[in-house]
Design a protein around this nucleic acid. Sequence first.
DNA 1: TCTGAATCTTACAGTTTTGTCATCTTCTGT
DNA 2: ACAGAAGATGACAAAACTGTAAGATTCAGA
Lengths: 224, 224
Amino acid sequence: MPKVLLVEDDEQLAKFLMRFLNSEGYATDYAGGQKDALRLFGENVYDCILLDISLKDGSGYSVCAAVKAENDTPVIFITASADEACTVAGFEIGADDYIGKPFGTRELLARMKNVMRRHQRTSPLLQCRNVSVDPIRGIVYKNGAELTLSALEYRLLLVFFSNKNQLLSRDRLAEELWSLTKEFVSDNTLSVYIRRLREKIENDPQQPEIIITVRGLGYKAVDA
Amino acid sequence: MPKVLLVEDDEQLAKFLMRFLNSEGYATDYAGGQKDALRLFGENVYDCILLDISLKDGSGYSVCAAVKAENDTPVIFITASADEACTVAGFEIGADDYIGKPFGTRELLARMKNVMRRHQRTSPLLQCRNVSVDPIRGIVYKNGAELTLSALEYRLLLVFFSNKNQLLSRDRLAEELWSLTKEFVSDNTLSVYIRRLREKIENDPQQPEIIITVRGLGYKAVDA
DNA sequence: TCTGAATCTTACAGTTTTGTCATCTTCTGT
DNA sequence: ACAGAAGATGACAAAACTGTAAGATTCAGA
């Protein structure tokens, strides 16, 4: 029976979630504030922590930071809205996922299962900076959140990530993507896909940090 | 310098290909018929064999069979047309790819590089019957030929292949594909994707041999 | 055999992907 | 600074993808 720690300011919501999670077969502990949360976290081992951002006695961020400093328990942030700024800040301190109010119980369950499954996975992830690929599931994560790539974007990313820190010529990349195509593919098409990929995985596509242009030679994915 | 054995009935074409392959940096041996081909194959180690189906003194099939009985040298069939019957027959005896006349030199090179790269790969392929997935390249092969799947079809296939011979409930499958979607996805949608996947990977989608329906329980991918 | 449920199949509309073009920007060598 | 090359970007149409609905088919149990 998986153990969940629910840290939530709003008692109304907390009560409801507790009942729901218990009915779904999760042993749920409840903390109304930061202090209780850290105490419970120190005393128990949880499979997942649901963490509201706004708490009476401080921010959920510090709880998350404390958790991640201790071990790798999955943390899902509950945010007042799907405010991007919040979520980004959350991911930077190691959150695994977030969910914005209002959310459905179905979505919550799915995200919980998802982070827990990811957490106990053994097969290797391809990683580069804040982006990782689960090649066995065909899923891409940026800061722990799932990312949707098209088939070609995904293949392009795989080429880069499985040849990390290596220079890849435009010819090589084009061949990896279109080698079996009979028709000629315009040289510029690759540029466009590079840009589309950057748009999805880079923090600032204008100043890429992952897929780097090496002028005259090609591109490379740099790790650090 | 990679060694290639070219087995081709048409001397005109053979001459042209020899010249081309040599100019591209492949040491190319030439055999006009089955007998020469087998002799050369016995005397040399090749990185790739290009094999015309119609030969003066017999069929290319028997050459392919002999090659595959001996070792695993990649074989690419050259067929008079992209006749599907021929190609299927070729794959059954272990051909790695085929190319139909008329073909461009660029396509030929691409296919050669492709089979050679596949041949020397070390990372594991996910396989089930005559379909295999290269998760590191995000490419699916059926009978050795590349197959194009959409993003969702690909993810569905990965779920099946990484849980081979296991029964997967419809719920489980739907969750793998749409767990992070907020909106509800119609139950029938999964049926449709199963069918689309079958259409691409099964020999006879009406009588699936890979993705099997287990009525009332779900589906499973069976290996043999 | 009949009936209802589960699964399959076809068709369809809205959306996304894909590849190209034209244009703009950035870099390099002179 | 200038010119040319390499790469980036925005816009666009054709094609493919995605999800739904409606009806057909198959199967298990009465």
